[in-house]
Design a protein around this nucleic acid. Sequence first.
DNA 1: ATAAGTCTGGAAAACGATTTCTCTGAGAGT
DNA 2: ACTCTCAGAGAAATCGTTTTCCAGACTTAT
Lengths: 338, 338
Amino acid sequence: MPSITIHDVADYAGVSRATVSRVLNNNPAVDQALRLRVEDAIQALGYQPNRTARRLRAQSSNVIGLIISDIRNPYFLSIIQGVEDVAYAHQMSLILCNSDEDPTKEQMYLRVMEAEHVAGLIMVPSQSSEEQQLSRLKKIGIPVILLDRVADDFEVDAVKVDNERGAADAVRHLIALGYRRIATITGPVHLTTGRERYTGYRSALEANGLAYDEALVKIGNFKTESGYQLTRELLAMAEPPDAIFVSNNMMTLGALRALREQEIRVPQEMALVGFDDMPWSGDLYSPLTVVSQPTYELGQEATNLLLRRLADPGLPFRTVILQTRLIVRESCGAKLRS
Amino acid sequence: MPSITIHDVADYAGVSRATVSRVLNNNPAVDQALRLRVEDAIQALGYQPNRTARRLRAQSSNVIGLIISDIRNPYFLSIIQGVEDVAYAHQMSLILCNSDEDPTKEQMYLRVMEAEHVAGLIMVPSQSSEEQQLSRLKKIGIPVILLDRVADDFEVDAVKVDNERGAADAVRHLIALGYRRIATITGPVHLTTGRERYTGYRSALEANGLAYDEALVKIGNFKTESGYQLTRELLAMAEPPDAIFVSNNMMTLGALRALREQEIRVPQEMALVGFDDMPWSGDLYSPLTVVSQPTYELGQEATNLLLRRLADPGLPFRTVILQTRLIVRESCGAKLRS
DNA sequence: ATAAGTCTGGAAAACGATTTCTCTGAGAGT
DNA sequence: ACTCTCAGAGAAATCGTTTTCCAGACTTAT
């Protein structure tokens, strides 16, 4: 119960606490014989330095904060794992928070991170207008890395994916397959992900001489239910689309569900391309053609960026943009038409 | 950069640090006027008590450690959310670790938790023989709650699901539908989940007068690949089964993939019942009939158990057993046969 | 042989909060 | 009016480390 402190080790080895500390921190100015004696004592007592005390003294911790916007979304799983793996390799722990897309909760967690004196923070912001909070954190000296949803011009480190190009790839693919009436279900415009994927959709249409039709654009909230509803709306149109590009994984599931419910064959009667791959995307009712994000790498990259900044706070800010990859399965109809 | 301390607040309000501390902790022995002055100062400076210092002084923290065995498995998502929600409601933070089913990593994280002086620990053990580590943690006075994989007799608090009954429900359902040659793909015997689901399978067979056939039992490792391989083995048998009960979600995905690959129609040519529901289980190639675990509640319950123990360390140990629910979709063939 | 310089390791001051102890002053009781 | 009591607030110790400063001891050069 009363855990062993540096004091106990010092007593056991018959030296001062300072010496034990020096041994722990590999300070060369300690005699070999003493060092061994101290190390024996540490072994014998099973001593483990108290991280809290260390942190207090050092005014810095080896804890990374990670704020996710929706932990129920499997998209974040490999991201978390990417972060965790890199953090683990650098002996850092992870505090995980789930803002649940709720700005209040997010704000509260930001304060927790501050009080917790985490070394740095990786976050998927729930809303774009959090700049004041971020600048507040920056003022305290906690480095922040933004993930996934990132305005390019804001002066922080950030990691994201080339959303516009990814979306354009998907839509271009549909066009190449011969679809002409391509709808999109996209995300909220106040999130860069929603905006950029929409832009990609639109630019691909225009680059290929297809008319842009406002009626074919539905704005969802990245949740399954919204994908389901909006797909039904599209199906109810007088002149429904022949293909849908859905800009995230959960809404794609919703779309698929709506289509199946109405017994619309995918891709024969409606082609579908989604955003975000999942390990089971190929096992779905209709194996999904998707724009795949390198999620694990996103997590890794974010953590690397953070470690880099911790090592050298003076570096210029950087936004790392990773590329997506179009994975062609069956929901787009490529196999049918080729 | 130099964050505001209790000292600054004291200076600003013209009182001693002790008084500020008293205000913070709602100590009644402080004059109303002074209290207001201090609160103003706190507001004005935007002061936030340093949790590290608090933790050091109080020798206890408001951090809960959560060690998961495989973060890539969506099964843990709602568990994490359940834990997070309850923790959040009690102003506690979460340190998340992923042991990756690796005992070495797990051991290392246990040490981190110890050094981190977390208030308590919720863990999904990667192996059953960790008793020495657990008792070590218990010796230090960190309460541990075991989750999911739990030996009933071990004297810790634990939360699990009634695996045997869940498995038996599934198999009984298959039997009722008329299947007679029912195989199972189960988990490692050294995990209670694997063992108990196997027992449930076997007892359901025997209770219904069906012969138990060793050849129809395959032992996997709870990963997709293993479900895939073992299903292929079952299919390659001279006399293949007519139904398979797979004892976790990932292996069920593997099974489904193997079946689809060989163009075996589910459930017409092979019925399938899995363990663990996922939000998209109904959207798969064949909508899965599954034994659903109340994952969110598991997380909640584990956290409640932990909070309960933190509040009163003297309580007797308790194992909470939640019930599963059979969700009937199409992969078992119920709709065809009814 | 002595002075200067190098090592070693101990004592003590931080880090920021809490808590016990102590002291001051005001109010009450005689 | 004097003492006793008690409330309220400050001083100081404490939590477990790290780190600076300093004092001895030993080495080396003159």
